[in-house]
């Protein structure tokens, strides 16, 4: 099965990448963008989803600074 993991900076953690992109959008004429947060998308093919949460905690995300969510795609 295929699972999709989304990792992003925790609320309130400085996200300079997102901030830089937010600053760039108005320069291209795209107005009204209040915030941009940039994370990481990880897709994996696994035999079982049993250990996905453990994978997120131990390696895919750093719980000190990031939050994650995951779903089985198919």
């Amino acid at each position: 099965m295929k699972v999709r993991v989304l990792v992003r900076p925790k609320e309130g953690i400085l996200d300079p990448q997102g901030e830089a992109v937010r600053g760039a959008l108005p320069a291209l004429g795209f107005g009204g963008v209040k915030t941009v947060h940039i994370g990481r998308l990880i897709e994996m093919e696994v035999e079982t989803a049993d250990e996905v949460d453990a994978m997120c905690k131990r390696l895919l995300a750093n719980p000190t600074i990031e939050e994650y969510e995951w779903e089985v795609i198919h």
């Binding site: 953690i13 300079p16 990448q17 901030e19 830089a20 750093n62 000190t64 600074i65």
Partner: peptide, 10 residues
Amino acid sequence: PGALLRNTGM
């Protein structure tokens, strides 16, 4: 403890 984030100045 803690973590090292991207420099604020990018």
